[in-house]
Design a binder for these strands. Structure first.
Lengths: 340, 340
DNA sequence: CTGAAAGCGCTTACAG
DNA sequence: CTGAAAGCGCTTACAG
């Protein structure tokens, strides 16, 4: 039903290999008459020939596809990375598959297996980070992949992350300088490398400014609206409320906001908040968020570069870890602490 | 380097076809000794065999992949559809490719071509709708596809849309009953079937309630934050400001909000707004949006069902158009008109 | 009952 | 210079 090389060949009266060579455009020096050349081209167009990439892939042992595995397609950070990588792939003649794990470790493992069996040339992974054996296996097998945004401290891989530690340090420092002393930290789940790093930045800032760490103010578990809500709720019930929140992840913010509004408090008059956000989430807020904004486009670009390089030399022992700084954006959700 | 059927066959000492039959699990009546069976299974596991799906696809002339083409992966409506379809595919043993066109017609055309050449079994398309020849061609070729959310009134296809016309009618009616008379309509680009239908619902409601249509209040062009901002800006400068906005698309809302806040106006005290939104966009607003909420999960489910059916019988002349109702959610961005 | 062979649609090293 | 043939890794109709 769909036309093949052979169809063109019989129609024109040449050998399929000739058609292949003409159509591929390689073999410039391959001299078939200009006439035949054009006849082949026209026939191809006429019968609506579109090459079977499955067959090509099988023959060439290369699919020209890369896969991206993200934990939440509804999170603008990950959607933004997907969008950027899609554009980069287009420019580099790569095709692109996005898989959404919904933060389910099992799905990640299955998707990786699937993408491998489909012959994907390489993978960019934002891992769920509940387990890591499958990532180690990938590395052993020399299957080209890059970790992005999240990574494992104890596995050396090609990696692009942001400076979570330093970025949060600066943000918390900003709060402290506004006079805040009781600053809550809302995290994600504790297996997460990124969240641990952010927590570290938070604690270091308190330490450096001689503020006692109150463990009641360090809450959070999971990357959902609900977990953010639950975490904030717990804090709101403390005898001495915090005056500021450092919120360590995009989606969580929404839940924290709900809890704050539910308690009848105003931002920033009663409570200051700083959150991780990106250009996409921010405009949804009627009042601009004071935010740590991760460089989505840069993350995508560098990750793709690393992956293309790794695909070219899968055996290389030279793993690169790229740490990008985020932008700190002063919005309208932070204010001087009362009395300062 | 990666193990093949043949590797297993030589290792076990049987013919590759035997391995294939055992591993496929079909041919229950195929009697190879229990022992050989297990030997094959174990060897497969041992050498880490994962079947080459490219080869399978080529042989079977079926890839077991469906593609989804969306115009904006950052729009939670489309991201939500992608997520749901991903889950449905997983349950139905299909793999899934998402392509993001960024509302660029040319990208859509290229992605369709790409997905076809990759042998994708079928497509779910949210079309850009600047052109339609390529969609007509797809239909002629009997290539299985379903249109979702947007469709062409003059091409009969399998389709899942929402009742744009009726949904907007009800929303505008709600505003009218709150006493609003000057109600602006912010649309997208005019080629869009959905936007035209929404505009129709808007106009019909005005007509039914004897409110004169003021063409100055019908604005908008494009599906971006910027276009929403520009459209709202134009209206804010009118001598007689509207008291309410009906905003016909998700992303546009953000731009309209910017313009309203910039003018120093409050929602809902000065201006009421109703927007298209879904469960994902809504929580980003500190004050819940009065919204028309499209049934993302249902759209995905019905579209996938139609596609699976179409893949089974590509020659069928029986095209189905499914129209789903949206939910009208009364939030806090609408108020009685001043003086009512 | 089961092995051997053909073939899916390509590409390219090989021989004429 | 160019046609014919092999082969990528599978599956299954066919013959023994």
């Amino acid at each position: 039903m769909t036309a093949t090389l052979k169809d063109i060949a019989t129609k024109v009266g040449v050998h399929p290999s000739t058609v292949s060579r003409v159509l591929s455009g390689k073999y410039e020096n391959f001299n078939v008459s200009q006439e035949t050349r054009e006849l082949i081209m026209n026939t191809a167009k006429e019968i609506n020939y579109v090459p079977n990439e499955t067959a090509r892939s099988l023959r060439l042992r290369k699919t020209q596809i890369i896969g991206l595995i993200i934990p939440d397609i509804l999170n603008p950070l990950f959607a933004g990375v997907a969008r950027s990588i899609g554009n980069i792939c287009e420019k580099n003649d790569y095709n692109f598959i996005v898989c959404n794990t919904d933060e389910v470790q099992d799905k990640e493992i299955r998707y990786i297996e699937m993408l491998k069996s489909r012959g994907t040339d390489g993978l960019i992974i934002v891992p769920v980070q509940r387990e890591k054996a499958h990532i180690e296996k990938l590395k052993e097998e020399r299957y080209p992949f890059v970790l992005a945004i999240r990574h494992f401290g104890d596995i050396e891989t090609d990696t692009v992350v942001t400076d979570n530690d330093g970025d949060v340090y600066k943000a918390v420092e900003y709060l402290i300088k506004l006079g805040h002393r009781r600053i809550a930290f809302v995290g994600g789940h504790s297996e997460s490398y990124a969240i641990r790093a952010r927590e570290k930045g938070y604690k270091q800032a308190l330490l450096d400014y001689n503020i006692r760490l109150d463990h009641d103010l360090v809450v959070g578990n999971g990357y959902t609206v609900e977990s953010g809500y639950a975490a904030a709720k717990k804090i709101m019930n403390l005898p001495e409320r915090p005056t500021a929140f450092m919120i360590s992840s995009n989606i969580i913010i929404v839940g924290v906001l709900e809890a704050i509004f539910e308690a009848g408090l105003s931002i920033p008059e009663d409570i200051s908040i700083i959150g991780f956000a990106d250009s996409c989430a921010t405009p949804y807020l009627s009042c601009p968020l004071t935010a740590i904004s991760q460089p989505v486009g840069q993350i995508a670009k560098r990750a793709a570069e690393l992956l293309f390089k790794r695909i070219d030399s899968p055996e290389s022992e030279d793993y690169q870890k790229i740490v990008l700084p985020s932008k700190f954006i002063v919005g309208k959700t932070t204010l001087k602490a009362f009395g300062s």
